[in-house]
């Protein structure tokens, strides 16, 4: 069976010559359907770089990336954009919602982009937001929502096109720990694993280990498995 996401010997070097920074060094990673994987590591170890390449937002220096069994690292920009829209969902530390749109419109937007329009899009957006506990906040703009609420809207947006893989970079970074925990449980349990979705989360937040199937450690650009109990000291 195909992995949802597979990285083979992926490296990334920023810049060149004396200022070159090797952010990722021959990283190998396989994500199974329905698997929730946490990637932890000290600041500057290359976590965001790794997630950006997996998310088809950043080109690799070397190595192979496959999404749903399709090698994608050398695909055209428009094909990669299409893959991002249809098969990947993104959740960011800073929510990144459209300020001029309401909660429900933010969710509808990505469905419209994927060709789903009208009442079908609206219904699904409403349903997703209701499942995330925002049934009463559909018509609020981001400026009128709390951080936790904004992140839940962002999660609804990431799920809108029903992608098999969600990538999250520090999704709880701007939330207090209790809110962060709640939001991530919503994403991972009800809407993630139970629906066969895979989720890769980059985080500094140790509490999230409890919801993960696997915890990986990235340090100096190199990825290693941990047993989930012992983790090296965080910086």
């Amino acid at each position: 069976m195909d992995y949802v996401l597979e990285l083979q010997d992926v490296s990334k070097t920023y810049g060149h010559g004396r200022t070159a920074v090797k952010a990722n060094d021959r990283v190998n990673l396989q994500i199974q359907p329905g698997e929730i994987v946490l990637i932890m590591g000290p600041s500057g170890s290359g976590k965001t770089t790794l997630l950006s390449m997996a998310g088809l937002l950043l080109s690799t220096s070397s190595g192979i990336i496959c999404v749903l069994g399709e090698q994608i690292d050398h695909a055209s920009a428009s094909h990669r954009a299409h893959m991002r829209l249809k098969t990947l969902g993104f959740v960011f530390q800073s929510y990144n919602l459209m300020e001029s749109l309401t909660a429900i419109e933010n969710v509808e937007l990505v469905m419209n982009m994927a060709g789903v329009r009208g009442s079908r899009a609206k219904e699904r957006a409403r349903e997703l937001l209701a499942m995330l506990g925002l049934g009463e906040r559909l018509d609020h703009k981001p400026a009128d929502l709390s951080g936790g609420e904004k992140q839940r809207v962002a999660i609804a947006r990431a799920l809108a096109n029903d992608p098999p893989l969600i990538l999250a970079d520090e999704p709880t970074g701007n939330l207090d720990s209790k809110t962060g925990q709640e939001v991530m449980e919503l994403l991972c349990c009800g809407l993630g694993r139970d629906q066969g979705r895979s989720i890769v989360i980059v985080t500094h937040d140790h509490r999230l280990r409890s919801i993960a199937d696997r915890v990986l450690w990235l340090e100096d650009g190199q990825l290693s498995e941990t047993d989930g109990n012992y983790l090296p000291e965080m910086t």
């Binding site: 998310g55 459209m98 982009m113 947006r157």
Partner: peptide
């Protein structure tokens, strides 16, 4: 620009 960057990240192409 940031919002358009977000749209690009989540799958919008230049034409859109």
């Amino acid at each position: 620009a940031r919002e358009y960057g977000v749209l690009k990240a989540i799958g919008a192409d230049t034409a859109l």
